[in-house]
Design a binder for these strands. Structure first.
Lengths: 154, 154
DNA sequence: GAACGGTTGACAACTTGTTGTCAATAACGG
DNA sequence: CCGTTATTGACAACAAGTTGTCAACCGTTC
């Protein structure tokens, strides 16, 4: 039974860390009038390096299509994204960072990298990699388990 | 800059694992008509081993007082919790598991322990502990940073 | 014992995410 | 070219959490 408690505690540690990081991210990104969610969304586009459609962004972030769309609409309304007609699909425009979005993201990302350097220095070299591996393995052992009948697969 | 990316990826791995575990937990707990949130709430009470007030439960779970209260009211309405008058505070009743709540939690917890044993066996002995330590350290390096002016400290 | 500040529950508004449904548009097979 | 199926955006409903505000209660202090 010791093993079970060990795993429970680990899961709770993940929940705790998740909550803390989101709360901290909200505060950190507030300087650029962003939230954690918007920061992540801009980051997904920046990382892709090219304009994407809403479903593509949703896939790359691992959230539902509708969830991504909601944020995209808000970010577009706030002028942080541009919508380009998609030659390959009339109803599905391509989203890309606007000038304001670029600047916004650059500022927060630059500050983040400074902070990350300091924080990462608190850990031994291979430590972060091995944690990533374990987390991904743990996640893979707990799949969404929709099996088959799903709509709108995620 | 490699270090910064390493940390970013770790944070994203935490977000991913968190999402996966919640989704999986919702499905797993559905057999007892629970959700992840309700399961955790019942677990917090069971772990405490004694009736608690709403703010105490909130503290122990690391969520806001109002957030815990919302779930407590729902769980009470569903008959999974009992409210006992609190001799020490007239307005703040003590919550405890009802018979139904006990049974509900026992069933899901028993199934969870079986599953956890199998999953924990996939990891080396010290691995889970070291991940917990890193996660908690990472969380502690990213405090809510309210500093002073906060209402309703969390 | 009246006045003060801190605690608590209730309520409302908001954020971020989910699922489900619908209609319009692609995409494809005959 | 037409019918069928899959994508896609919009919308609604919901879950879970946050913050803020208010009024009632508690404890302490003068």
């Amino acid at each position: 039974m010791e093993q079970a408690k060990l795993l429970s505690d680990t899961v709770l540690a993940i929940f705790r860390a998740n909550g803390r990081l989101i709360a901290w991210g909200d505060h950190f990104a507030a300087a650029q009038a962003l939230t954690s969610a918007r920061w992540q969304m801009l980051g997904a586009l920046a990382l892709a390096g090219e304009p994407l459609t809403a479903p593509q962004i949703a896939d790359s972030m691992g959230v539902s299509r509708q969830g991504a769309q909601k944020q995209l609409n808000l970010l577009f309304a706030d002028g942080l994204l541009t919508r380009t007609p998609n030659p390959a699909h009339q109803r599905s425009p391509l989203y890309w960072l606007s000038a304001a979005g670029q600047q916004c993201f650059n500022e927060v990302d630059s500050r983040w990298r400074q902070h990350a350097l300091k924080v990462a220095a608190s850990f031994a070299p291979g430590e972060l990699e091995s944690v990533q591996r374990l987390l991904d393995k743990l996640a893979s052992l707990h799949p969404p388990e929709d099996a088959k009948g799903e709509n709108d697969a995620r």
